[in-house]
């Protein structure tokens, strides 16, 4: 029973990872061309343009949709990288000698104390990241929170009898990690990845709103920033509606998926974690 559900988990993880990679490559490496600027500027919604047009005569709905693959790819990429970092760090801190492990966790506490969005703004204001650097920046700031969860889980897995037996029979730390500890954590890792994506998308759109990202890379936050100075006009609501709906919808969807995945992860690990 356990083997089958674990097999399913790994297969599911594989599918998701494949989808992520495909999305990342497509979204970041082959950006869609700019939406055609053929219509009259600042039109209200009509049969041709369901959410109206912006100042350049571009369809608002198309623009919001065009930002989707890039945004999703960015979120996925950043959260996956962050997850890899936090997994490695968390497992290492558990398998390392106790003193070193405690120091490592303390270091995480120090990093957690820093307000991540502010630091992101600080760094972004000087680097003005394009999509690639933005992924690295958000990953670099998003990995400390996950470490705690990963470390707690890893501790549990390492204490398991099967792992202990493997160690007794000569398994080295890397072997243990790869074959015993990490595979069992996969459901939780997937849930964390999805939640991480949601968080990253929120941060990325916040940075884009403030104007700290490269505006040639279409983002919903950037579209909202464009609409802000023109809010006094009657057509402004349509410029705001498209990116706002897209952004909130995505965050909502990811949130719901994340919650579902979390319960599934807890179930597959055997029981609830209420007595944490």
């Amino acid at each position: 029973m356990e083997t089958r559900s674990r097999g399913l988990a790994v297969a599911g993880a594989g599918v998701i990872i494949a989808a992520m990679i495909a999305g990342m490559v497509w979204g970041l490496a082959a950006p869609l061309p700019d939406v055609p600027m053929a219509a009259a500027p600042l039109l209200p919604p009509g049969p041709d343009h369901w959410l109206g047009t912006n100042q350049l005569g571009q369809d608002n709905l198309l623009r919001a949709l065009a930002a989707t693959p890039g945004t999703l790819a960015l979120g996925l990429a950043a959260s996956v990288i962050a997850l890899v970092l936090s997994t490695v760090y968390g497992v290492l801190s558990v398998t390392a000698p106790p003193v070193l492990g405690r120091v490592m966790m303390r270091a995480i506490d120090v990093l957690l104390a820093l307000p991540s969005l502010l630091v992101a703004m600080l760094v972004a204001s000087y680097v003005r990241p394009g999509p690639g650097v933005l992924v690295l920046l958000l990953a670099g700031l998003g990995w400390p929170p996950d470490v705690r969860v990963v470390a707690a889980l890893a501790r549990r897995e390492v204490a398991r009898d099967s792992t202990r037996f493997a160690r007794v029979f000569g398994g080295g730390p890397v072997y243990l990690m790869v074959h015993h500890v990490v595979p069992r954590m996969v459901p939780v890792l997937i849930a964390l990845a999805v939640q991480g994506t949601r968080q990253t998308i929120i941060h990325a759109s916040a940075l884009a709103f403030v104007g700290l990202t490269d505006p040639s890379f279409p983002t919903w936050g950037g579209m909202l920033a464009e609409a802000l100075p023109r809010l006094h006009e009657p057509t402004a609501i349509w410029q705001v509606a498209a990116p706002a709906l897209a952004l909130c919808g995505t965050i909502l969807a990811l949130g719901l998926a994340g919650t579902r995945l979390e319960s599934w992860a807890h179930r597959s690990l055997g029981g609830s974690d209420d007595r944490g």
Partner: peptide, 10 residues
């Protein structure tokens, strides 16, 4: 000049 450059590029 975001808007200008995008349109010229287009």
């Amino acid at each position: 000049f975001d808007l200008v450059s995008r349109m010229v590029a287009a």
